[in-house]
């Protein structure tokens, strides 16, 4: 049963990734952060977590959208803590702020706390939540909105470091 589950899990993730393609939502599971870090091996990136039910998150997306307009190669990964049932609305929100070209994910677990824990046991679910990974993938956690100035400052420092 366990092996079957693992095989199915693999199949689903592989199919899921193939079916959705670039700019679409990918199912975020307990090992997705490892996959994301693999993609950004040796490079800094911003992981931002948000929800449709969070008032401040919309403002956070707005800020990221502004940043994305002037930063063509913004290393950004966007994870929604909502459910796949809300995929249309999640994509609409990202499109509204010009963020549809980024790597985007949605939580997939009947117990979302497990996914929160897999990212960071000390994260208590407050939103928005961001992690700034440097090129060695040492990360800086931030709860609440990040300002455009904070993000630009971080980008400047981490690009120089490279």
């Amino acid at each position: 049963m366990k092996r079957l589950a693992a095989a199915l899990l693999f199949l689903w993730l592989a199919l899921g990734a193939a079916a959705v393609g670039a700019g679409e939502l990918r199912p975020f599971t307990a090992d997705s952060l490892t996959a994301i870090r693999h993609t950004f091996a040796g490079r800094p990136f911003i992981l931002t977590l948000w929800s449709l039910t969070c008032h401040h998150c919309v403002k956070e997306l707005q800020t990221l959208g502004r940043l994305a307009r002037s930063e063509r190669n913004l290393p950004l990964v966007i994870v929604s803590t909502d459910t796949p049932a809300e995929a249309p609305e999640i994509r609409a929100a990202l499109k509204r702020f010009g963020l549809e070209r980024f790597d985007t994910w949605v939580f997939v677990d009947a117990v979302p706390e497990r996914l929160r824990y897999s990212i960071d046991p000390s994260w208590r679910g407050e939103l928005p939540r961001s992690y700034l990974f440097d090129s060695a993938h040492r990360r800086e956690a931030h709860s609440g909105m990040l300002s455009e100035a904070q993000l630009r400052n971080w980008l400047r420092q981490n690009r120089q470091a490279r």
């Binding site: 199915l8 689903w12 079916a19 199912p27 796949p84």
Partner: peptide, 16 residues
């Protein structure tokens, strides 16, 4: 978990 993933995939594919 399998059930959740099954549910998850359908809207994603449909959305795509």
């Amino acid at each position: 978990r399998i059930g959740v993933l099954a549910m998850a995939l359908l809207p994603l594919v449909a959305a795509a």
